[in-house]
Write a protein that binds this DNA or RNA. Sequence first.
DNA 1: ATTGGCACTCAGGCCAGACGAGTGCCAGTC
DNA 2: GACTGGCACTCGTCTGGCCTGAGTGCCAAT
Lengths: 346, 346
Amino acid sequence: MVTERGLQVLRAIVQDYVDTHEPVGSKSIVERHAFGVSAATIRNDMALLEDEELITAPHTSSGRIPTDKGYRVFVDHLAQLRPLTPAQRSAITTFLGEPTDLDDVLARTVRVLTQLTGQVAIVQYPSFSRATVTHTELVQLSPSRLLVILVTDTGRVSQRIALLTSDLDETDVAALRGRLASLVTGRPVREGAERIEALRATLPAEPSRIDKALLSVSHVVAEELEEFRQDRLVMAGAATLARREQDFRGSIHPILEAIEEQVTLLRLMSEMVTDAHGLGASIGRENEAFGLPEASVVTSDYDAGGGTARVGVMGPTRMDYPSNLAAARAVARYLSRLLDEDETRR
Amino acid sequence: MVTERGLQVLRAIVQDYVDTHEPVGSKSIVERHAFGVSAATIRNDMALLEDEELITAPHTSSGRIPTDKGYRVFVDHLAQLRPLTPAQRSAITTFLGEPTDLDDVLARTVRVLTQLTGQVAIVQYPSFSRATVTHTELVQLSPSRLLVILVTDTGRVSQRIALLTSDLDETDVAALRGRLASLVTGRPVREGAERIEALRATLPAEPSRIDKALLSVSHVVAEELEEFRQDRLVMAGAATLARREQDFRGSIHPILEAIEEQVTLLRLMSEMVTDAHGLGASIGRENEAFGLPEASVVTSDYDAGGGTARVGVMGPTRMDYPSNLAAARAVARYLSRLLDEDETRR
DNA sequence: ATTGGCACTCAGGCCAGACGAGTGCCAGTC
DNA sequence: GACTGGCACTCGTCTGGCCTGAGTGCCAAT
């Protein structure tokens, strides 16, 4: 069984290893930390830690490095978040500044987070699945092309072009506008999508010209609503990976791939297990299913328009968890505040 | 002076070096190419090429590799585009498929291009500076928040939120809508921006409530029009860089940086020098001013709504220019056709 | 339980030598 | 004059052996 001091030794090993990027030996531990015992004692503790598979020796006679399991224990039981420096705090407020809209907020957020941590930063868009459609608008671009605009109470605006099979005039569009509004305005996106589905069924086999148009438009709307329900990510800091190249024993390819793909990261982010404070960490091999066995992700939940979403960073397994968690939490808190203020204006 | 055969030797060196990634010696040249002369003769030619700084030897006794100048001569005088394979041709058509709008077209394009070349692909958005505003629309989100929508004849749609200092009712918005339309609708974006500028000057020192609102809205519109005039890029294939890591003697950091920054690449893309066929290459040190001394970019112009823009790929100096140029050209041609068809619907 | 001592292991650095790819030069040939 | 075969030379790379030092595990002593 690992003793209390044993755990402290684990903590020391994780800290030193993250610092120096070199396997840490018993001697350097007694030098750098005030354990008040000799190196031999530390060695005994380390032997126990190795039995528990919390640390491992890269080769027979060298110091130890934490295993993924070791990092997990460290994060769960030993890490205390490192509070941000005043400089970092002020960086958040100045960088985030006076954002104009949701896209802008998140773009700034992700940049500030990569700046704070030096890692790849990821921000999940607030979930729109419970969002309500507040406005719909149709703009006629040409006789057969309609621009469809949707706005939700979460501040998301999207537009899309519907191609019509027959030409419409201004009064047709006005009629269409009314029918579309009654169909989805004021409804949650999910319900809107369902009502469109239902509409399909009720239309006669030989729809009128305007019904046909409504069908085209509602098809586009349904697609767009569907997209609302899918989460999205914003990312930044891919360039920082090049600096950290040797941290990934394999290559940074899987990471870059994941960044481009997005969909893998989306799943990873949403499947994260978080603690009572909304903090989560997914470490090394735990990400193997996502093709990222050498990467860790730490996240913090933030509140946005009723629901919650996540901000986080992705980096090598050997990352500085306390700092990164603290940065994610700080940014998440600021973000929650910012979006809450906004709430009143929606 | 470099002889005709000397140039053929240069071509052989470039081709073999790109193939093998190893310095190429006189012997391997006579083996792989039917020059009908001996290695010693090739050596003499190589000595001349070295005098002209078209090739260089990494160390005293090793084969030669092309210099940036050598690549330049190769591209300008020696390279003949390698026609795409039928498989590649069909990849273009199937991948590009049935795109819905401009964003979609370009997103598909960039993916197909990175797929064809295995390099980072870049597509410039068509220039909107000569675009004309065809529609404006205002949607009231709340008493003090207006959604402003702009549509141009190039198919670009954008929206933005204007915060008002005082609340408006429906009739106010209608009035505003009319004034905004008469201000910019049917005008080129540049002219629209100027007219807004002019409007500013004419408004009284104590503007009415509606004038104030118009000011806020037009401010947002002006910003958005400004953004229309800035070109944008779509990119894909950053993950391919990891595979090619050792090709960049330094690190891939500058490249990743450039991809994130965009603005450097924007300048680089627009300052490219192209030949009569709209093909361009910027090689190695020629990109030093952009912080990319180890990268090359090849581009092909495409037509879009009257103006032209560029597609291209970025990769190591030691890239396969004939293939990449051919791929860029093929994609550009397809893109031109696709956008031309579209033209009729705008 | 802790400690100092000690034998042992092993990665990494260093050196010397062998190897070989490739060059430059030169004298000879067509 | 252009080309060629031959040859001495250079120099990067590979190999194997040696040494060093950090770090370990174990044990007897406290």
